[in-house]
Simulated assay, not measured.
Amino acid sequence: MDWSLRFLGVGNASAVELGSPMSVIERDGRPWLTIDCGGEGLTAFKAHYGHMPQALFVTHVHLDHVAGFERLFVDTFFSAQRRGKVRLYVPATVVPLLHKRIGDYPNVLAEGGANFWDAFQLIVVGDAFWHEGVRLEVFPVRHHWPETAYGLRLQGALTWSGDTRPIPEMLARYASDNELIAHDCGLHGNPSHTGVDDLEREYSAELQARMMLYHYASVADGQALAARGHRVAQPGQCVVLAAPTAPHVLAQDPP
């Protein structure tokens, strides 16, 4: 069984040409779990795979990460095969924020008779959750406000930082099994995001060597990050992952 990570978009909220920061964990070349649902990212997903996501994890609710949900609702609600079966894994403290941001709109259909969440199977998660028989871990990150943004770990394969300032204490625990680390990093830091100076100051050389940087501001900034010796993710790039060491059971057939 082969695992990989496909970067659908790698830019920050202003870098439309780089796509919204969104990725897909693939298993045997097929989408297994999608991380976030930005507008440009959802377009890239449909263009590459020919269909919409079937399972998503939401890191936080800034619009560059959730703006695709209106389109996903329409695609899912009006499909007899998909309605109520598209899985959304959402950290418990993010659920009310997500509802306020995308779900709480009077008459999601003009004619009434539907609720936003009718389209999805909402799975509220805490420190960990199971997807198709594999256990993934969830951890808080430093982005704007406590308990509003989270990262994701597929043990032994991938640690996804989400939008964050440096989190060395979290990576000591959630990137301890030689995972590829996809990390938020721009050329310049700010109170919500990691800059390259922050990255180089806060993380060991060993951790930096396992990182791929995304959420940067422009093509030129990406080139500048690469010139400093860092691996920089590109839109559409697919990276081979190690086989997960995460606990797993035989996957059950979907309902």
Rank of each mutant, 00 (worst) to 15 (best):
G236M: 09
L207S: 02
R210I: 11
D64M: 05
P106I: 05
I35H: 04
V196Q: 06
D253E: 14
L56C: 12
P140M: 14
L187N: 12
L72S: 14
V74Q: 14
L152P: 15
R135L: 05
L18T: 00
I102L: 15
V24S: 13
L18F: 03
A220I: 07
T93Q: 12
Y203R: 00
A44H: 11
L213R: 01
A217Q: 08
P31E: 03
D64I: 05
D127C: 10
L171W: 02
S161W: 11
Q208R: 08
A220G: 13
F45G: 04
Q208D: 10
L171C: 01
H60V: 03
F139Y: 08
W160G: 02
T159S: 06
P244G: 08
G103L: 13
G222Q: 02
L154S: 11
G50H: 13
L5I: 13
S204C: 03
Q121L: 10
H65M: 04
S23K: 01
M52C: 13
R210G: 05
S161E: 02
Y89L: 08
A114T: 06
F78G: 09
S204W: 06
W145M: 10
P21R: 02
A15P: 01
T194D: 09
N190H: 13
Y150E: 07
Y150R: 02
A119Y: 01
V86A: 12
L98H: 12
W145I: 01
P244K: 04
N190R: 12
V232L: 09
F45A: 06
Y214R: 07
V239L: 09
H60T: 05
S192C: 07
Y216I: 01
A233T: 02
M22D: 10
I167V: 11
R210K: 08
T43F: 00
M212A: 07
P106L: 09
L72Q: 10
R201D: 15
A47P: 07
S204E: 10
W160V: 06
P53H: 10
V240L: 13
F77R: 08
G84R: 11
A128P: 10
L42C: 04
Q223V: 13
V58A: 11
N12D: 15
R142V: 05
N107E: 07
E17Q: 11
R201F: 13
A205T: 14
N115A: 12
E147G: 04
P247I: 12
E202Q: 04
I35A: 06
W160T: 04
I102W: 09
H188P: 02
V66G: 04
A157Q: 01
G236T: 06
A242Q: 03
H60L: 06
E200S: 03
E200G: 01
F116S: 15
S192R: 09
P166R: 00
V24A: 13
G39L: 09
G29W: 01
P168D: 14
P96H: 04
H188F: 08
V249G: 06
F78D: 09
G189I: 04
T245E: 10
H230L: 06
M211W: 15
Y89N: 09
T59Y: 07
D253Y: 14
A246S: 13
W130K: 02
D75L: 10
L171I: 00
